[in-house]
Design a protein around this nucleic acid. Structure first.
Lengths: 153, 153
DNA sequence: CTCTCTGCAAACTTTTTGCAAAAGT
DNA sequence: ACTTTTGCAAAAAGTTTGCAGAGAG
């Protein structure tokens, strides 16, 4: 993607300590379970469901329960570490470790949801609404949902 | 909303015949149930859940079952009469009778989802992507999700 | 040591499915 | 008449909750 950044593929995988740090900063206890859950969220492609996070996480922490994943994800969302992404076709809830403003590419073939960051686009949209104004609505944030098909690279 | 049009409030309520026509064109049999379901979708404010459609529809057709509402909505979506709207905070699926391209205003106070049509905005976005191009993605349609708060009129 | 978090299981909500009877074309 | 659709009820899928015991700070 020429002008976009993908938060999942940019940086080296976060260390245990970085993950613990993020949890601590958010006021959450850094349990083994939460560390692997947060790690999964950061490394799993797209916007996984609780189920997908659980499947990934049981390989590292075999006794972890799906309920714990739900509770941890709720805690992350409440703490602002993570956000819920409206799921594309009404399936399960999806979570995104990236809280910065970004947009989504939704592929109708593979059902994948990819992040798309583009400050220039953000700027364009903000300017548009700054100039135009909505009569009875005060916009706060924008997220563009782009439907289409992934091209073979 | 100064420059937008709301498909739910624009026109006079559709007649039975118009509803039947729409169903027929879509290749669906015009049963009593489907007529009232489609009517509810068109007149209900926002983007109702199957549950909400059912609650509305049982007043006119008391024996209609929730399962029928689900099946009818699925049929509408398959036929292109209706589309699913990604629900805001992971609640139930929501449906929208309007298939034309439009955007959504989501109020964080009332949890309402309002339609927002703006050809100028569409144009702006299309131009932007026409000029820029995405490397491995062929965009097809765009929908802007605007989060904010409703202002008292 | 204290308080939060986990694991488990049960409850709940939402959606899907199967099938016989009813209704539409 | 022929098929699709309905209604019902049961099952599946997804999510939440309560509580006793384990683990973090």
């Amino acid at each position: 993607m020429s002008h976009s950044t993908d938060p999942h593929s940019l940086s080296a995988p976060p260390t245990q300590d970085q993950l613990r740090g993020r949890l601590g900063q958010a006021g959450l206890r850094a349990t083994r379970q939460r560390v692997v859950i947060l790690e999964s969220l950061l490394t799993l492609p797209g916007h996984p469901t609780a189920e997908q996070v659980h499947r990934r996480v049981v390989t590292q922490e075999p006794t972890i329960s799906l309920g714990t994943v739900y509770k941890a994800l709720d805690a992350f969302v409440a703490a602002g570490l993570t956000r819920r992404v409206a799921s594309a076709e009404g399936a399960s809830r999806r979570y995104d470790a990236d809280c910065s403003e970004h947009h989504h590419l939704f592929c109708t073939n593979t059902q994948e949801i990819m992040d798309y960051c583009d400050p220039q686009l953000d700027h364009l949209i903000r300017d548009f609404f700054a100039a135009r104004g909505l009569q009875n609505f005060q916009p706060h944030s924008f997220s563009l949902h782009i439907t289409g098909v992934k091209r073979p690279d």
